[in-house]
């Protein structure tokens, strides 16, 4: 039988290609375009090559913003993930209590970023805010506009309050899907409570936790509205994170070239960290070659 090779079917992916072009490639290429040129007006531009990239990578303000950003993301992940797992383990499994707790836990997730910032802005005010006033009454000189420690602490508590429920919900659904037989087998094997968590619950939560950690990493790495509303990046630049630096540069100073280069670096960092994390977790589950 003669087989006729005909690759016309490839044409069928054209609509998809067009869609992807509009949704991803064209916007991205705009940024790439700006990042390698110095554009003055519609007719005047100079090709700059990697100049903007080099400049951005060597900018001390951005470097410290990047470090702050990593410190922030790492801190919130370290708090939110264990806390979320803990909450999920404590949540009731059936009856009206389960539904009630589920709704209570979910509430913070439903509040828009700006509103969260405003809520906490008022909440932490020394004169009328419950938390700010309360801490002062207790004798602690709490002031997020003066003390970088207070500002940092407050932003972290705010993020934990806002986003731990996401991890808790993901873990809760993961825990619900573990068949009863696993717990029964563990009892038969005389496993301790810790062993049940370590060898049954945690492994079964791996998949939801990977999603949770990735989402929380990307989210927290791009955090903007909440600290912007709460502290405006201050005091000084102690809570100025990457996206705020970017906004200032792109909108405030209209430095399109550098901010385009910076955007790309930003994007690549998130992509790289997510990929490394995902690959590392997936590799952990494989058998070690040659035996261990």
């Amino acid at each position: 039988m003669n087989k006729v090779y005909d690759n016309k079917a490839w044409l069928l992916i054209l609509p998809m290609l067009a869609l992807v072009a509009f949704s991803a490639i064209i916007p991205l290429m705009t940024v790439v375009n700006y990042s390698v040129q110095d554009v003055f007006d519609a007719n005047t531009r100079f090709f700059t090559g990697t100049e903007w990239f080099v400049q951005m990578l060597n900018d001390p303000a951005l470097q410290s913003a990047l470090l702050r950003q990593f410190a922030f993301s790492l801190t919130v992940l370290c708090i939110e993930v264990p806390l979320g797992i803990g909450i999920a383990l404590l949540m009731p499994k059936k009856g009206w209590q389960a539904s009630a707790v589920l709704i209570l836990v979910t509430l913070p997730l439903l509040i828009p970023w700006n509103v969260v910032g405003s809520i906490w802005q008022i909440f932490t005010r020394g004169d009328i805010g419950l938390m700010g006033w309360g801490l002062r009454e207790l004798g602690y000189e709490y002031n997020i506009t003066r003390s970088a420690v207070d500002a940092w602490g407050t932003i972290i508590i705010m993020d934990v309050w806002h986003w731990t429920p996401l991890i808790a919900l993901l873990c809760y659904s993961g825990l619900r899907s573990i068949p009863e037989a696993y717990y029964q087998a563990a009892r038969i094997d005389r496993a301790s409570r810790w062993a049940v968590f370590r060898f049954i619950q945690l492994p079964k939560l791996t998949n939801v936790l990977v999603i949770g950690v990735l989402l929380r990493f990307m989210h927290s790495f791009m955090i903007y509205a909440e600290p912007f509303v709460l502290t405006g990046g201050g005091p000084g630049s102690s809570t100025t994170f990457l996206s705020q630096s970017l906004t200032t540069m792109a909108i405030g100073q209209q430095d399109l070239g550098p901010s385009a280069a910076f955007s790309l670096i930003y994007f690549l960092i998130i992509l790289l960290v997510s990929w490394v994390f995902y690959t590392a977790i997936m590799n952990m589950q494989k058998d070690k070659e040659g035996g261990a």
Binding site: P179, A181, Y182, Q184, A185, R187, I188, R190, F199, I200, L202, P203, K204, Q285, A292
Partner: peptide
């Protein structure tokens, strides 16, 4: 007495293994 103290083994209909262990 809970199963832990009865010293009894039980094998279930569907396999139960501890995934992350060898």
């Amino acid at each position: 007495l809970p199963p832990e103290q009865r010293n009894i083994a039980q094998v279930f209909q569907f396999p139960v293994v501890y995934d992350t262990m060898t």
